[in-house]
Design a protein around this nucleic acid. Structure first.
Length: 844
RNA sequence: GGGCGUUUAGCUCAGAUGGCUAGAGCACUGCCCUUACAAGGCAGGGGUCGGCGGUUCGAGUCCGUCAACGCCCACCA
């Protein structure tokens, strides 16, 4: 093929050129006719499209792409789909802010609704259907932004294999898996206390909790024994005294032995509560006696359940204390309650503090403390505990046998790096309950169930009406179950639809099943499942990785993948955690524009597997320099002849020595990749390449410019080496390697085969020849540098003092050495290593 | 309160199963426009490998301990 080498090769514009070519050529198209053994399947993380783009998004994806490219070149058919996680609360919140709307399910659908150009205040209330339409519109836009970023970065995904967690296929898969869980008893509903976000007004799962340090104040409050003597408790939530159902102390606490079994009355309300014993009560905290409320925190729930205490709840789903006076408060107590009815918890807390002070039941001033408070990770106010009916999937949190099985799955999984497995183990060991999957929200996959309504209007939650598989996906709030019609909705003898949706993890825990077409194409699924790798961030081991393991364990009885590659955490240039609130988030696009996509890829691939990595512009500059170097070195190597010179022309010792070191590089880089250590593969390749350009190319230059057999040997060696280096770099720098490849090769470098030792058969010599000559040349260069002379300076004579072996090797490439050093003559003497170079007079 | 990780040149980081004078790039100093590349090349200065203690003929590399930083988990009255 004719060579078309630009005079001044440029990096700019390569990504657009090659992205378009790869798409039109189908370079990364997946071939589903291959067998499972021939396929390498990747369970790509679907990015949350309503989240912001930042360097953390780039980091892991590029590392995975490098590995995908290696596997593809090494002969695997790579299944590399891309998904978008677009359902759930982040999208709802973004839609609310972006358009200035909020969802009110009681409103009718308005088919002519268009959102205002600018979000207004207060937000416009719209129907559930209008709201969901806006979610779709916005996520479509967000997905384009992500796809554009991935393509600019050169991710080698098959863009025909995409999915979104809200699309019909994902919904169908998610509902089908849920119904299977239900049929097998792995999913169940329960009316019980749950952690509840009062702003989003939804239940949240254990995996979505985080602790935040918040200020609070200990109120030392007196309850009263029958004889009127006070018994003090300390509480940070005096507003819940009206919800108090018991006092508790440790069974061994000597101070309270006489009280166990007796009753005391609460201050202000005069409600009689018993004093009970439980091991979780800590004698060292406060007075050693705690008030049990329904419910102030998760310990209350444990006490309430294990001690079988009554329920006296007052906190409503919106976070306010209920308006009506609770039935257990009568007389004066009702008057007291009217002071706090309808208030938010924090307001009621203040009012109760005042009233307790007035009544004399508050001992001293409240004591300020900092303490951890449970928050929904996306929420702004502390979680409350509300009793409500919710759906759960078993996860071992209440079942030791299942917990053990899931721990075994974690041990079966090959973790890269290995220490990440500890996080899985700790999480599973620490589970306190099953996985709460229902959410009282709108934009998500519906719980695909209806419930019969009895003649007395009661709802039979224990016997849900299940749709047949072929109806999925269904929306029970707008569709009717078979053998009913819409007029029976909410009527005695009729049905109601489950109003809830599933948590986003309930769907994204099925990404292998979604991408692999489990629900509809068993043949396709059998070719990609279980997948080879699950690449992901460390922060979602407890959610995505664990929940995927649970689903696959139930549905298929196996791990969903063989290997989990966990990338490190991304820090800002000052090594601080990036966060929106601090305002130090680094977005990738400006960096890609400044340094080029290859430079950003180079930075990402320099981060060791699982190691936290700071955004580093210096590393990006090096990557850019490397890419430019490849262009220029390629121009040199290909500039000598218009056609390939066959490797059989190679006979010069220096050329064969260079190829021997290159063969070593290939072996080492391949081993590193097989170990999932892309960073090591890059380092090995890069080091070898710079040595090649700085030493070999300089040494061979003069001979290459000449003619005859010795020149042909150089040309052939340059061609072969370049051919190998381009392929070694292709996983990291896909654009520049493809560009150079196109100058002289047919097809794509990314579909060429990974270099192997067979290509060096009969072409390798003694690698030490290369080292020996480089060492002597280095000394000649030093002599010129010391003399402040140009590297072109002529040298009259060189005397090499060295051991016999080194001398023998230097002699093999003596003509190259003399030419590169511009030396007229060289002689040798055995002894300790030194080189004496006599510069010609003209040199100065 | 537990667990995991990190701590190597001014900066960012490599240093697998312990073994010759501890490496790279950036930054810094000097020199060089050499027909692939000045967006480059050559040469050079710079490190008590977090502290302490141990194992060993020998430790940045193994063990113990302490410290700082980061992350994860925790029943937070």
């Amino acid at each position: 093929m004719t060579r078309n080498i630009p005079d001044k090769p440029q990096l700019e514009g390569l990504e657009a050129k090659w992205d378009a070519r790869w798409e039109s050529d189908g370079t990364y198209r997946f071939d589903p006719s291959k067998t499972r053994e021939e396929i390498f399947a990747i369970d790509t993380p679907p990015p949350t499209v309503s989240g912001s783009l930042h360097m953390g998004s780039v980091f892991g994806y590029v590392q995975t792409d490098a590995h995908a490219r290696y596997r593809r070149m090494a002969g695997k058919e790579v299944f590399y789909p891309m998904g978008w996680d677009d359902n759930g609360l982040p999208t709802e919140r973004r839609v609310q802010n972006f358009y200035g709307v909020r969802c009110d399910p009681s409103l009718p659908y308005d088919r002519d609704f268009t959102p205002p150009g600018e979000p207004g205040d207060p937000p416009i209330s719209i129907s559930r259907r209008n709201f969901i339409e806006l979610c779709h519109i916005l996520t479509d836009e967000d997905e384009k932004v992500f796809e554009n970023l991935w393509r600019t970065l050169g991710l080698s995904v098959d863009w025909k294999q995409t999915y979104a967690t809200i699309d019909d296929h994902s919904q169908r898969t998610s509902q089908l898996a849920f119904l299977n869980n239900l049929a097998r008893g792995e999913a169940y509903s329960q009316d019980a206390p749950v952690l509840w976000d009062i702003d989003f007004q939804t239940a949240v799962a254990q995996a979505e909790l985080e602790d935040r340090e918040r200020g609070g104040s200990y109120h030392r409050v007196a309850f009263h024994k029958p004889d009127g003597t006070p018994i003090y408790i300390e509480t940070t939530r005096p507003e819940l005294i009206c919800s108090c159902v018991a006092l508790v102390a440790h069974p061994d606490d000597e101070r309270y032995q006489s009280l166990f079994g007796s009753s005391v009355t609460s201050p202000l309300f005069g409600v009689e509560v018993s004093v009970v014993a439980h091991e979780l009560a800590d004698p060292d905290k406060g007075t050693g006696v705690a008030m049990i409320c329904t419910f102030g925190d998760t310990t209350d729930v444990i006490w309430w359940r294990e001690l079988e205490l009554p329920t006296r709840a007052v906190i409503q789903p919106d976070g306010r204390l209920q308006e009506e006076t609770p039935t257990w408060l009568t007389g004066d107590a009702a008057n007291v309650y009217s002071e706090i009815a309808g208030l938010f918890a924090n307001q009621a807390r203040r009012r109760m503090g005042e009233m307790l002070a007035e009544s004399g039941d508050l001992d001293g001033e409240p004591r300020q403390i900092m303490h951890p408070v449970k928050f929904y990770e996306k929420g702004d106010r502390p979680l409350e505990i509300i009793t409500s009916r919710q759906w759960y999937i078993r996860n071992g949190g209440r079942d030791d046998q299942l917990r053990k099985e899931l721990l075994v799955r974690g041990e079966e999984l090959d973790w890269i790096p290995n220490f990440m497995s500890v996080r899985y183990r700790h999480w599973v060991e620490g589970l306190t309950g099953d996985w709460l999957i229902s959410r009282q929200r709108y934009f998500g996959v519906a719980i695909p169930l209806w419930y019969p309504v009895a003649a007395d209007w009661s709802v039979d939650y224990e016997n849900p009406i299940v749709p047949p598989d072929d109806r999925l996906p269904v929306d029970p709030s707008s569709e009717t179950p078979d053998s009913f019609d819409e007029s029976q909705r909410g009527q005695p003898g009729g049905f109601i639809g489950d109003p809830d949706i599933m948590d986003t993890w309930a769907t994204s825990s099925l990404t292998p099943q979604i991408a692999g077409h489990w629900a509809d194409d068993p043949d396709f699924f059998s070719r990609v499942f279980p997948m080879d790798i699950r690449p992901q961030g460390p922060e979602i081991i407890r959610t995505w990785l664990f929940s995927s393991t649970v689903r696959s364990h139930f549905e298929h009885g196996v791990l969903p993948w063989h290997t989990a590659t966990i990338n490190g955490w991304i820090l800002d240039p000052e090594r601080k955690k990036m966060s929106k609130s601090i305002g130090n988030v680094v977005t990738p696009m400006p960096l890609i524009e400044e340094y080029g996509p290859e430079a950003v890829r180079y930075w990402a691939c320099n981060g060791r597997p699982g190691v936290d990595t700071a955004v580093d512009f210096g590393v990006m500059k090096i990557g850019r320099r490397l890419a430019i170097k490849i262009l220029n070195a390629s121009r040199f190597a290909l500039g000598f002849s218009d056609t390939d010179v066959a490797p059989s022309a190679i006979f010069e010792p220096l050329d064969k020595a260079m190829l021997a070191t290159l063969a070593e590089t290939v072996v080492a880089a391949t081993a590193a990749f097989d170990d999932y250590d892309y960073a090591r593969a890059l380092e090995i390749t890069e080091k070898s390449f710079w040595s090649w350009t700085d030493n070999y190319v300089e040494l061979v230059k003069a001979r290459a410019y000449g003619a005859g057999e010795v020149a042909a040997s150089a040309h052939a060696a340059l061609h072969l080496a370049l051919n190998v280096y381009l392929r070694l770099f292709a996983p990291f720098l896909p654009f520049v390697t493809e560009e150079v490849w196109s100058w002289w090769r047919d097809g794509s470098v990314h579909r060429s085969s990974w270099p192997g030792l067979d290509e060096f058969e009969g072409l390798t010599g003694d690698p030490a020849v290369f080292d020996a000559v480089s060492q002597v040349l280095g000394e000649i260069r030093r002599a010129k540098s010391d003399a402040k002379a140009s590297m072109r300076a002529e040298v009259d004579s060189v005397r090499v003092t060295a051991d016999g072996e080194l001398i023998e090797r230097a002699k093999q490439a003596e003509h190259d050495l003399l030419a590169a050093g511009r030396a007229a003559s060289i002689d040798y003497e055995e002894g300790d290593f030194s080189v004496d170079a006599q510069l010609a007079q003209a040199a100065n």
